[in-house]
Every structure is written in C-alpha cells, then in structure tokens.
Nucleic acid binder design. Structure first.
Lengths: 100, 100
DNA sequence: GTGACAGTTCGATTTATTTTGAACTGTAGC
DNA sequence: GCTACAGTTCAAAATAAATCGAACTGTCAC
C-alpha cells in the first residue's frame, strides 16, 4: 500500500519519548545520519541490505515519532529528515545524534 | 555488594548510543527528571515502588551510560545527574529530556 | 558478634521489540 | 489488460530487554 496516506505528527505534537524510542536502534540511527547529509532519498537507497518489511517497520517508527517525513512521488517514497522541526522542539538533540 | 566500586565513564568517553538506550525507559526517564530538580538522592528515594533488583538494573544502565554518578556514603548510595558532563558532550539533549 | 538495612548479582521468567515471508495495494510501462 | 516494481500489512518466529526472588556483601547500631 504505497498509496495509503502517511500520518505525520505536527511539530508541537512530537513527544521526546517517541523520538528516543525511534533513535534507539542501530539501523534507524544510520538512517538519520544518512539523511543528515543527503537531502532526500528513496527508502531503498537508505537501507538496501534489509528485507522490505523490516525496513518498512523502521520507516514507520521514524515517521510516527516525527523524525522523518515521507513524500510519495510516483511509486517511490522519498524520505527527508524533519531537522527544522526537531531543532525547534528539541534543540541540540539531533546534532548530538548526528555527530555521534 | 554496596562496597564494589562503581565504574563511571569519563566525559569524553560517553557514547550517544548508550545514552539514548539508557533514556529509553519510563522509569529511567523519571529518575532523570527527578534528579534534575533534586541535587542528590538515595536510590530508595527515587524509585520506592520497584523491587531492589529491578531498580539496581536501572541504576546500572544510568551509571554505565554516564547519565548519573553514584557516590557511596555509609550504606547509602547517592545519585547525582552528570548534567555538566552531558551538556558538554551532548548540548541540549538533557534539557530536551527534562522539559519533556 | 548479631540483626537490620542498602544495594548488587545471578538465573529464570515474562514482556517488548525486531525480523521474516507471504499476501496485498498502488503506480508505471507496454 | 498484464507484468514489474515500491512499499505496506499481517501473523509467526527469533531476539532483546525488563522483572523478580533468592542469595549475597558491606555498613551501621546495639
């Protein structure tokens, strides 16, 4: 179901608990770091060595916590870091994660 | 073994992965928030409604990730947030967590 | 020294999270 | 319409993390 529309939480609805949970996985951390230096990428470009269903699980965690935005274009989903939103709501957090 | 000496990582050895993992639990998040507004507390004062072994597990996660310092005084262990260290290494992170 | 207390450690159980494959939806190209 | 492809969903299996009780160490007060 590429076509089901994706639910993105509003900036002021982001919960630190959800963001921390989403960041607490090596693959998702890698996604965040990859997106930090690449403006927009398709799902497959980011986690090529993972089954589609596992990857999809991670997209969901990242999307529902508000860390990434998924935009559909044709049959691809492009991912983008919601850096501005996260910086507004939790200043410093994302930079700490990206720097590592 | 109250007497075994506790290993605290140095400030520049703190790893964001460990800190994120330690923060990813409601009880530990509560501990951090409690310590943010109370300078030093004994273990029992912070998590009174938890078995001693579960609580001890959480102290360990918090200590080994570098979030808290445990200092022994008599038969009590006092906990203190390593706020300055965390602010140095990951500026903004702790404030985001404390504000919630 | 004895008893009570603060915390740790160990192993076993429970619970939460991740992973996977199979079946599916929507888009694109022919 | 048919086939190929991108990604989602579901249920089941594997893995990781939290919880608990029991046995333990060190300190304190008597």
């Amino acid at each position: 179901m590429v076509g089901v529309e994706l639910d993105h939480p509003a900036t002021d609805a982001l919960r630190i608990e959800d963001v921390l949970a989403a960041l607490n996985h090596p693959a998702r951390l890698r996604v965040v770091r990859t997106l930090a230096s690449n403006d927009e990428l398709t799902c497959q470009e980011i986690l090529p060595d993972m089954t589609k269903s596992s990857a999809s699980h991670h997209w969901r965690m990242l999307r529902e916590s508000g860390i990434v935005e998924q935009r559909r274009e044709g049959r691809y989903l492009y991912l983008r870091l919601r850096k501005a939103d996260l910086d507004t709501r939790f200043p410093g957090l994302l930079d700490a994660v990206i720097k590592g």
